[in-house]
Design a protein around this nucleic acid. Structure first.
Length: 237
DNA sequence: GCCAAAGCGGTTTATGTGTG
DNA sequence: CACACATAAACCGCTTTGGC
């Protein structure tokens, strides 16, 4: 019953940026080549570099059938976005690519709701409950934590616990609609109340104010008003 | 059946921490 | 302040999986 983990290496932000930028123009084969060259500076071991490439490809290139169009939209937006908005796109794509990452983020988001500081040991324990008490789980947990630390999502305190810096504000409507689609797909629901989107755990590092009007304009969603103040968002495709 | 990709566990190296 | 000990991070190579 051991669940696959996959995310077993620290991923750097500029690696993700590079991958997303190249993914629009290159074939799969070319991607492997270009990435290998690019990563050579940061990752010396052949095997480790291959691992990293595998992960980057899975995040931005070899994605599941049903999120291809979402991915393509994200790639189109990418060049015109600022640092924060790009980070959100990466965040969403990693969540979709790696359930392990998604689960960890969800746990962490919940903990941050209750307290300001989250010890890495607590996160580790939670992940072992979900994925079994294995060495691999430890490695993956720290890989995720190290990665998001280096992206500036969390800050480390005294080497043992993490705290949340200021939330990252996202106002770009295209990026917001991306975010909503990620939430719906990642949690496997048909529809979600707009209220729940605003404070969703999966995007705990971000702050945004999604407007129903703008979602409707994007054509990807169907918006239904239920009762007085409940607005349901549903994917049209 | 072959080759590349994905997954895994063990080992080494680096960094941090508490104690005398 | 030095030392041992603990934990984190990086690295490596083997096994399994999956597409052609």
């Amino acid at each position: 019953m051991t669940k696959a983990v996959g995310f077993d290496q620290k991923v750097l932000l500029h690696h993700l940026d590079f991958t997303a930028n190249e993914a629009r123009k290159l074939t799969r084969k070319e991607m492997y080549e270009v990435l290998d060259n690019y990563l050579r500076n940061d990752i010396k071991g052949t095997k480790s570099r291959k691992n990293a490439i595998t992960m980057l490809m899975k995040i931005w290139f070899i994605v599941d059938e049903e999120i291809i169009s979402l991915r393509n939209k994200a790639l189109e937006l990418f060049p015109d976005l600022n640092k924060e908005e790009r980070l959100l796109l990466h965040w969403g794509m990693v969540i979709l690519a790696y359930p392990f990452f998604k689960d960890l983020v969800q746990k962490m988001g919940n903990l941050f709701r209750l307290q300001d500081e989250v010890p890495s040991a607590v996160v580790g324990r939670k992940m072992k409950e979900l994925y079994g008490d294995r060495r691999r789980v430890e490695v993956a947990t720290s890989a995720v934590l190290m990665s998001i630390k280096s992206w500036g999502i969390v800050e480390m305190l005294k080497g043992r616990s993490y705290k949340l810096p200021n939330k990252i504000h996202i106002t770009n409507p295209d990026v917001q609609s991306f975010l909503v689609e990620v939430i719906i797909r990642a949690t496997n629901v048909k529809a979600i109340p707009l209220d729940m989107v605003q404070t969703h755990t999966l995007f705990f590092p971000f702050q945004y104010d999604v407007s129903a009007t703008e979602l409707r304009e994007s054509k990807v969603f169907q918006i239904d008003r239920q009762g007085i103040d409940m607005i349901m968002v549903e994917l049209t495709s």
